[in-house]
Every structure is written in structure tokens, then in C-alpha cells.
């Protein structure tokens, strides 16, 4: 009989235990470790385990990470700006698609459309990023293609090694993350609400503004968060797209860990990044709380 004969609640608890314990050991514990190590310092090849806020002081004092100077932004504000821009563009481009699949596509073909949209997402991320580099590069597909067609004579320089390319690549990479939450929110809207709105004198467009859009806000919020958060942590795209010159927060962290071997500073940078992401996300949720109330 054992645990299987006990109450349903106890059985549920017994089932939650394995994944929970796994996550505690391999997620909670490491997150604690990262906090602890951020208050230590690196001295040569060893860690100096005396408690100090030196890493944080370094991050907040110099012009590199937070404040920037007259010529360039600090890495963190720049990263947040890039991620926010990527998020804005990705979600704006994704909304019409989600709307299209939810409201225009015939019900029996919806899953086919969703499947078509999801396929590119499941192909190697690294290769997709790399392909954009090939497409947008100086001798890349767009340039050589346009020259071939006689539209331009000289290759365009604006395509690669600037933030535009990062934004295009990330908007492509996170498209699905933006579409699905919005689609789910749109699917939940009771279609009779739209008929009620039209019955009460609104046309299709004003119905969209007054009924559909507000009801889809939870989906938009979900999409924004699920795009914004991981893009901050992405360093492959900036590295491949910006070349050696461009550095966003995640590149800086990666460098501290894998090249400069200053783990405590890297840990502190990770924590600052997480905090910044958390604060921006919370602010965004608070701004939209009016639309989120009473809904899942």
C-alpha cells in the first residue's frame, strides 16, 4: 500500500517532490551560490572568501556598466534598451499573426498554422543566428542578391555589425514566444462579446479597440515578458552580429566567466542583470495591472 494508499493530497505531494527537489538542488541552491560568490573577490587563481561589496562598487562606480559616458551608453542600459526594442518590435509584428490565426483562419486549420509558425523556432538557434549573419553580411545574401539584380552597385554597410542586425535576428528568434501567448489570450475571448459590441453599435475596428484589444492584454503582457527576459540573457546574437566591438550585458558576463576568470564580478553582474530584468518586468506588470485583474 505505502504512499499509494494515503490521501490524494499526500499522493500529490509525493508526486511534486521529485521535480521540486531536483529544482531546489539544481536551481535554488545555485542561485543562492551565485549571490554568495558575488560578495567574494578573485585574487589570482583563488577566491578570497571575505565578505565585500567590492564587485558591486566596481559595477556602480565606473563608466562601463551602468552610467556610460558622453560617447556611449553603459552596458546595462544599452542591453535593456536593445531588449526592449526587440521586444516591442517582436510583439508588434506578432500580434497581427496571432490575431490572424485566432480570428481569420478556419478552426480546423488553426493547428496547421501554429505548427508552421513553430517549426523555425525548433531548428538550431545557433544556425539561425549564423544564417542571419550570412544573409545580412557585407558579402551576404541581401547585398549580393541586390547587386545581382542591379538595384545597388556597392554592398550596403548598414546591415551587419550594428544594432539593427541584432534586433532583426532576435525578433526572428523569439517570434514564436510572442505569438503563442497572444494567440492563447485571443482564443479565450468569447466570440459573443464581439457580436454584443457590434450589436451595441461599434464597427469592427472600434470593437477591436474596445473589446478585443483590452481582453488580449494578458497575452500581450505574457508575450512581452517571455521575449524580454531571455533576450537580455542572450549573448550569441550580439557576439555574432556586433563583432568584437559590441558588448551587451550577457557578453560581459560570459567574458568574466570564460575568459577573464573573474567569477565573483561575473556573479555580481549576473545578479545586477537579474534585478534589472525583474524590476523592469514588475514595472511593466504594474502598469498593466488594470487589465490583468481577475484574469489568469
Amino acid at each position: 500500500m505505502g504512499i499509494f494508499a494515503t490521501s490524494p493530497k499526500a499522493r500529490a505531494a509525493a508526486l511534486v517532490a521529485p521535480p521540486l527537489i531536483y529544482s531546489l538542488l539544481l536551481l535554488a541552491f545555485p542561485l543562492v551560490a551565485i549571490v554568495v560568490i558575488s560578495f567574494w573577490t578573485q585574487s589570482g587563481l583563488n577566491l578570497d572568501r571575505t565578505f565585500t561589496t567590492a564587485n558591486y562598487r566596481e559595477i556602480f562606480s565606473g563608466p562601463i556598466y551602468i552610467w556610460g559616458n558622453a560617447n556611449r551608453w553603459g552596458v546595462l542600459p544599452l542591453s535593456i534598451f536593445v531588449s526592449a526594442t526587440v521586444t516591442l518590435i517582436t510583439v508588434a509584428l506578432a500580434y497581427p499573426i496571432a490575431y490572424f490565426v485566432s480570428f481569420v483562419v478556419a478552426p480546423e486549420r488553426k493547428s496547421l498554422w501554429l505548427f508552421l509558425i513553430t517549426i523555425p523556432f525548433w531548428t538550431s538557434y545557433l544556425i539561425r543566428v549564423f544564417l542571419w549573419k550570412v544573409i545580412l553580411g557585407y558579402n551576404g545574401v541581401v547585398n549580393t542578391g541586390l547587386i545581382e539584380l542591379g538595384i545597388i552597385q556597392e554592398p550596403l554597410n548598414v546591415l551587419l555589425y550594428n544594432l539593427n542586425s541584432v534586433i532583426i535576428t532576435l525578433a526572428h528568434a523569439y517570434a514564436v514566444f510572442a505569438i503563442l501567448p497572444i494567440y492563447v489570450a485571443l482564443e479565450k475571448i468569447d466570440r459573443s462579446l464581439l457580436e454584443a459590441s457590434q450589436d451595441l453599435g461599434e464597427n469592427r475596428f472600434t470593437t477591436f479597440l474596445r473589446v478585443t484589444l483590452p481582453l488580449s492584454v494578458p497575452g500581450i503582457v505574457g508575450a512581452v515578458l517571455i521575449v524580454f527576459i531571455p533576450t537580455i540573457g542572450d549573448y550569441v546574437t550580439p557576439e555574432l552580429m556586433l563583432g568584437s566591438g559590441g558588448r551587451l550585458m550577457s557578453n560581459v558576463i560570459q567574458t568574466q566567466f570564460l575568459q577573464l576568470n573573474n567569477w565573483p564580478l561575473g556573479a555580481a553582474l549576473s545578479i545586477i542583470t537579474m534585478l534589472a530584468v525583474g524590476i523592469v518586468s514588475l514595472l511593466f506588470i504594474l502598469l498593466n495591472r488594470r487589465w490583468l485583474r481577475g484574469r489568469a
Binding site: 539544481l26 551565485i34 560568490i37 540573457g233 550577457s250 558576463i253 560570459q254 561575473g266 549576473s270 542583470t273
Partner: peptide
């Protein structure tokens, strides 16, 4: 962010 998970586990 994935990098945070990676870094945290690396430390552990």
C-alpha cells in the same frame, strides 16, 4: 535568462 542558470550551475 539562460546565462544566469548556466553561470549559477557552473559556480556550484
Amino acid at each position: 535568462p539562460e546565462i544566469v542558470i548556466a553561470v549559477a550551475l557552473l559556480i556550484v
